[in-house]
Measured scan of single mutants.
Amino acid sequence: DPDTRIPVINLEDGTRLVGEDAPKNKDLVEWLKLHPTYTVDM
């Protein structure tokens, strides 16, 4: 689902973004380019 929010984690300080704070699936690739310290939180 393009509107599903994907949890991400900041590799530098461990900050996790989940729920309403997390980027949407459809925006994920662009969002990660803009926030290079974050990666998808598995």
Rank of each mutant, 00 (worst) to 15 (best):
D1S: 08
D1W: 00
P2S: 13
P2D: 07
P2F: 03
P2R: 15
P2K: 15
P2I: 12
P2Y: 04
D3G: 05
D3E: 14
D3W: 03
D3H: 14
T4P: 07
R5F: 04
R5D: 01
R5K: 15
R5L: 00
R5Q: 03
I6H: 10
I6V: 15
I6T: 03
I6E: 07
I6P: 01
I6Y: 01
P7A: 14
P7G: 15
P7M: 07
P7R: 14
P7D: 15
P7C: 06
V8P: 03
V8L: 04
V8F: 00
V8R: 02
V8Q: 05
I9L: 14
I9F: 12
I9D: 06
I9R: 14
N10A: 02
N10S: 13
N10W: 03
N10R: 05
N10E: 01
L11R: 11
L11C: 09
L11N: 15
L11P: 12
D13S: 11
D13H: 00
D13I: 00
D13Y: 07
G14A: 11
G14D: 10
G14K: 11
G14V: 15
G14S: 10
G14L: 04
G14N: 15
G14T: 07
G14Q: 13
G14W: 11
T15E: 01
T15P: 08
T15I: 10
T15G: 14
T15R: 14
T15A: 14
T15L: 12
T15F: 09
R16W: 09
R16G: 05
R16T: 11
R16N: 10
L17M: 15
L17C: 07
L17I: 13
L17G: 06
L17A: 03
L17N: 06
L17D: 05
L17P: 00
V18M: 14
V18I: 15
V18F: 10
V18K: 10
V18R: 12
V18S: 14
G19F: 00
G19L: 03
G19Y: 04
G19H: 04
G19Q: 04
G19R: 02
G19A: 07
G19D: 11
E20P: 07
E20G: 09
E20L: 06
E20Q: 10
E20M: 08
E20D: 12
E20F: 06
E20W: 04
E20H: 03
E20T: 13
E20C: 07
E20N: 09
D21I: 03
D21C: 12
D21F: 09
D21E: 09
A22Y: 00
A22W: 00
A22R: 04
A22N: 03
A22E: 00
P23W: 00
P23M: 01
P23K: 03
P23G: 01
P23Y: 00
P23V: 01
K24D: 03
K24G: 02
K24V: 04
K24I: 10
K24A: 13
K24R: 09
K24H: 11
N25K: 14
N25G: 10
N25C: 07
N25T: 10
K26Y: 04
K26W: 02
K26N: 07
K26M: 07
K26R: 12
K26E: 15
D27M: 01
D27W: 02
D27E: 08
D27Q: 08
D27L: 01
D27N: 13
D27V: 04
L28W: 00
L28C: 07
L28K: 04
V29P: 14
V29L: 11
V29T: 15
V29D: 13
V29N: 15
V29R: 15
E30L: 03
E30T: 13
E30Y: 05
E30N: 12
E30S: 13
E30H: 08
W31M: 09
W31N: 08
W31K: 11
W31A: 10
W31S: 05
W31L: 03
W31F: 15
W31P: 10
L32W: 02
L32T: 06
L32M: 10
L32A: 03
K33V: 08
K33D: 13
K33S: 13
L34H: 12
L34F: 06
L34K: 13
L34P: 06
H35D: 03
H35M: 04
H35R: 04
H35F: 01
H35E: 02
H35P: 00
H35C: 00
P36V: 01
P36Q: 04
P36H: 03
T37N: 12
T37I: 08
T37S: 12
T37K: 12
T37C: 12
Y38L: 02
Y38W: 14
Y38H: 09
Y38Q: 08
Y38K: 06
Y38S: 07
T39E: 14
T39P: 01
T39G: 07
T39S: 12
T39I: 10
T39Y: 06
T39M: 05
V40F: 02
V40H: 06
V40C: 10
V40M: 05
V40K: 11
V40R: 12
V40S: 10
V40G: 06
V40Y: 05
V40N: 06
D41L: 02
D41P: 04
D41I: 00
D41F: 00
D41A: 05
M42I: 09
M42Q: 14
M42T: 15
M42V: 12
M42D: 03
M42S: 15
